[in-house]
Design a protein around this nucleic acid. Structure first.
Lengths: 209, 209
DNA sequence: TGGTGTGAACAACTTCACAGCG
DNA sequence: CGCTGTGAAGTTGTTCACACCA
């Protein structure tokens, strides 16, 4: 593993490879070529080999990759051997949908706390047994029930402020669904999920053909 | 408007500019510099000017951009002057959350149809007044209530098949929330929204510091 | 004068093509 | 012999730096 900067896109692709490998492995496939796995993931095979090469040599020349073995390696690289705990900020429709999102649970992500500012919601217990806390009590909640990643599903206007509270309480990773760019310190990682961005893009390509 | 290929990333950024401009414009700001708007959107100012330059000259040298004027232009470029109609495929938790997602409605996107395969759901009327149709009746529904964009919130396993039905019925744009790569004909546009990809990425960066 | 518009330099990422090894 | 691993070439996207103009 040489010390080179790894493209963010490589990390996203690793996640895809891992998902596809899970599937192939469960289907009983023992060996897969870069050609085949790449095709399934919609990328070039050289790309796939290069992605893996950032982290080591996992294949066998003339043969391919052992699915189970490679899957284990990728999960390790991505840090998926441990369970990650999530805190939800903003218990609206979207937030509640995420609480029940099966792909999160299957992949080792688990919500352990939920926050809102709406006094009508605070104190309520959700189907999952999770109680909605006041955003102001975050420090106390985190010390009782720690989590590493904050999931932001508040309206755009409130997101920055909420994130600052979360970071103050020690959260180092943010998954942001609010359509705004967040300002955070250098040691905090943010990933964005922005639906309207994608829809606008569709709008553009459908309009210009 | 010269005839050059436009980077996909430029389109995403236009969407962000438009959102920020809406805000600034509503706040009463009449003129904005590339420096300021770029900072608000988290990009380099040369980048912003170059993005706009693909489509024309919208600024005034020595002054900046007139917010309302520029906003109008960007909306025009993105095709946001018209209302886009959406069809929902898969009425689970996530799908229902999207039906009520305020940012869609505000931006001129409207759901006009909803589909599922679950016979328990088919025929039910949702809060919005939308009736859930059988996926098999898609052609008939589309002819009665046409829409341009299909939003996929089915489980991963069913997505490809659903998309094929939608395309057969004439849908040309797909917003896919299912964590799989879709195979579609060249004249169909797909945009992906994949939560787990982003979470895995967070997992990676939080594990490797 | 001050901020836009843009060619040219730079940086990042992807694909090719083939050496090297099981 | 076939498929991986990888330097080199190609492509795409970003930033610089300054000419140009209201």
């Amino acid at each position: 593993m040489k010390y080179i900067k790894i493209p963010p896109a490589t990390i996203y692709r690793l996640s895809r490879y891992s998902r596809k490998l899970s599937l192939l492995s469960r289907e009983g496939l023992e060996v897969v070529s870069s050609e085949k796995l790449a095709a399934e993931c919609g990328v070039n095979s050289a790309q796939l080999r290069k992605d893996l090469a950032y982290f080591g040599e996992f294949g066998v020349r003339g043969v391919g990759y052992y699915t189970g073995h490679l899957l284990q390696h990728i999960k390790n690289i991505l840090g998926l051997e441990k369970e990650w705990r999530l805190g939800l900020f903003g218990v609206g429709n979207l937030g509640q949908a995420l609480l029940h999102y099966p792909n999160f649970i299957n992949q080792g992500y688990r919500f352990v706390a939920a926050f809102d500012v709406d006094s009508g919601k605070i104190g309520q217990t959700l189907g999952s047994g999770l109680e909605i806390s006041d955003m102001k009590d975050i420090t106390e909640v985190v010390s009782r029930e720690p989590f590493e990643i904050g999931v932001i599903t508040t309206p755009a206007g409130g997101a920055q402020q909420v994130v600052e509270l979360a970071i103050e309480a020690g959260v180092k990773g943010i998954l942001n669904f609010a359509p705004v760019i967040l300002r955070v310190p250098g040691d905090v990682v943010v990933e964005y999920v922005d639906f309207t961005l994608r829809l606008d893009s569709l709008s553009y390509y459908l309009s210009n053909r």
